[in-house]
């Protein structure tokens, strides 16, 4: 037993060096050298395109009703028969209707990460009229902008098509 404990200790130290430092640091090296934009968090001057933000007011496309706090990521964990979920969804539906946006399922539900940066194309189109009105733009211009921002499912079949809210709003701000 004693000899095995000694072996276990030495093995743990060797694995610490090889797997605990060697492997991740090599990957940090590769990431920083070859993929520095993504490996550092896909940052733009306005935030990360991979981390959702809260957009206030009808002048912006709205993202999902997440807490958008990446220091406390995760979903609401409310169950499918939760009275609380019924209540919070109701108030989200009311809020959207007040802004003149027809509710869609991803606009009234919070995500798994709590920082979902995307909405479905359907949800983006649902907001076109409200945003165009608030900014005094022609709805057709805004709709064309949304169309140009749609990411189709990767390679045509992996995942779902989506619109990134941050890049959509950045290009929206450049319209005027």
């Amino acid at each position: 037993m004693l000899i095995n404990l000694r072996r276990a200790l030495v093995a743990s130290l060797l694995f610490l060096a090889l797997l605990g430092f060697g492997y991740p640091l090599v990957e940090v090296g590769i990431g920083q050298a070859a993929f520095s934009a993504t490996a550092n968090g896909s940052l733009t001057p306005y935030g990360s395109t991979l981390i959702g933000q809260r957009w206030l007011g009808p002048r912006w496309f709205q993202g999902r009703p997440d807490s958008d706090n990446p220091m406390a990521s995760g979903g609401s964990n409310l169950g499918p028969r939760s009275e609380q979920l019924v209540k919070s969804t109701k108030s989200q539906i009311t809020a959207l209707e007040k802004m003149g946006i027809a509710p869609t399922s991803d606009l009234v539900t919070s995500s798994g990460s709590g920082v979902d940066p995307d909405i479905s194309p359907r949800s983006a189109f649902a907001q076109v009229d409200a945003v165009a009105k608030a900014r005094g733009l022609a709805p057709a211009t805004v709709r064309a902008l949304v169309v140009s921002q749609i990411h189709l499912a990767q390679f045509g079949f992996l995942g779902s098509s989506y619109v990134n809210v941050l890049t959509l709003n950045i290009s929206l701000s450049r319209l005027q």
Partner: peptide
């Protein structure tokens, strides 16, 4: 719960706790 809140038609399925992408 989302249906009871008023959004009966959910074409993209149960999106509570799911990512759009």
């Amino acid at each position: 719960a989302v249906a009871k809140a008023g959004l009966v038609h959910q074409a993209s399925g149960n999106m509570v706790g799911k990512e759009v992408r």
